[in-house]
Amino acid sequence: MSSVDLETLRTLATLARLTPSDAELTRLAADLGRILEAFEALAQAPGPRPDEPPATRTRADRPVPALDPEAFLAAAPAHEGGFFVVPRTVGGET
């Protein structure tokens, strides 16, 4: 289970929105294979159920004024009329 073939790595890169070159992919496959092999013992560990985290801190439903859009739009790679601008696309999810 510790070897990562190039096809798997390509799928991972697509999922992570990364496009390493073929040479980089080959090197990364070797790195990941070596790292996972060294970590193999982990996969044999029985391990109890993870601890449940504590109850989360909550806040009251009080709206506060938002940031001035100028404070962050100016740092955006592209913006127009108060919107962030990206290449034309369709899709999404909720």
């Binding site: 289970m1 970590f39 982990l42 996969a43 560990a45 029985p46 391990g47 109890p48 159920r49 993870p50 601890d51």
Partner: peptide, 14 residues
């Protein structure tokens, strides 16, 4: 196999 086991080991270590 990986993330799941790791959280188990983490709990054992704690």
């Amino acid at each position: 196999a990986w993330y799941g086991r790791a959280t188990g080991v983490r709990a054992a270590l704690a």
